[in-house]
């Protein structure tokens, strides 16, 4: 009888241990579900000082711009970008109407070579080579979230800053609506933690080069754990934005030439 009791007690202990191991494994499995990757790139919503006019930039870029920014885009003969890989921080921009000074960005125009040399004081930053054709008289320069319209003298020399503006960026995660009824335990853009509401309505980023993969961890509407990673490539965002600005600038000129803005 005692032997029987011992066997029973031993078996129950064994089962309890196995149950504990099983439960622990299940709990671990619940906490760390397989990461699902989403490859669709996010839509970039570009916002001007006021979001008065909504225009399609193509390739998943939406433009919500003010009249001044639209005007600058329409006037520009070319668009140049100072990549964040060259200068990763915001630089002091010169005053309107000036040519830049010792403590600010400046740009030198060489009409013969069709090159714009952008410098910070005496330090060269980047040289923009403009394609052949036409004589550019205005260039729109973008650096990070800032735009500036520069007037070029036909004879060359320092360009004059005539307008500066700022853009804001919102990244719209594809299919973010799927998280509407989920319990979101953690949401991040790169290393920056964001709220669920931002995930659903759009993630504000001050600079596109700071955007990273969007990670969402939580529980589905049925209460099952999930771990999602939406791939975001900062370089792709930058390229799409540059192309969209170029396309919009060309479209505005075509529309103006066709007299569609007369009314």
């Amino acid at each position: 009888m005692a032997t029987m009791r011992n066997v029973l007690a031993h078996s129950i202990r064994l089962v309890s241990m196995l149950l504990a191991v099983g439960a622990s494994a299940a709990k671990d499995g619940e906490e760390r579900p397989r990461v699902r990757e989403f490859q669709e790139p996010p839509t970039i919503r570009v916002l001007g000082t006021s979001a008065r006019f909504r225009l399609e930039g193509g390739e998943g870029v939406e433009m919500w711009l003010d009249a001044e920014t639209l005007g600058a885009l329409a006037l520009a003969d070319a668009i140049a970008c100072l990549p964040s890989s060259v200068v990763a921080t915001r630089l002091p921009w010169p005053d309107i109407g000036s040519e830049g000074g010792p403590g600010a960005i400046g740009a030198e125009w060489s009409p013969a070579e069709r090159r714009l040399h952008v410098r910070m004081g005496s330090l060269p930053l980047i040289t923009v080579q403009l394609p052949d054709g036409g004589t550019p008289s205005r260039i729109l320069l973008r650096h990070l979230d800032r735009l500036a319209l520069l007037v070029l003298r036909p004879t060359g020399g320092p360009a004059i800053w005539v307008w500066v503006g700022t853009l804001r960026f919102v990244l719209l995660v594809p299919d973010a609506e799927q998280y509407l009824l989920c319990e979101v335990e953690e949401a991040r853009v790169g290393s920056q933690v964001v709220e669920k509401s931002a995930l659903l309505q759009g993630l504000s980023v001050s600079r596109l080069d700071e955007a990273g993969d969007v990670i969402v961890i939580g529980r589905s509407p049925a209460g099952e754990p999930f771990h999602h990673r939406h791939r975001v490539c900062a370089a792709d965002l930058e390229e799409r934005l540059n192309r969209a600005l170029g396309t919009l600038s060309r479209t505005l000129k075509i529309e103006a030439a066709a007299g569609r803005f007369d009314r």
Partner: peptide, 17 residues
């Protein structure tokens, strides 16, 4: 998750027990 328990039990102890 719960379906693991019977499987574990069957492996650990024989039959009726």
């Amino acid at each position: 998750m719960n379906s693991r328990y019977p499987a574990l039990i069957r492996c650990a102890v024989p039959g009726g027990l």
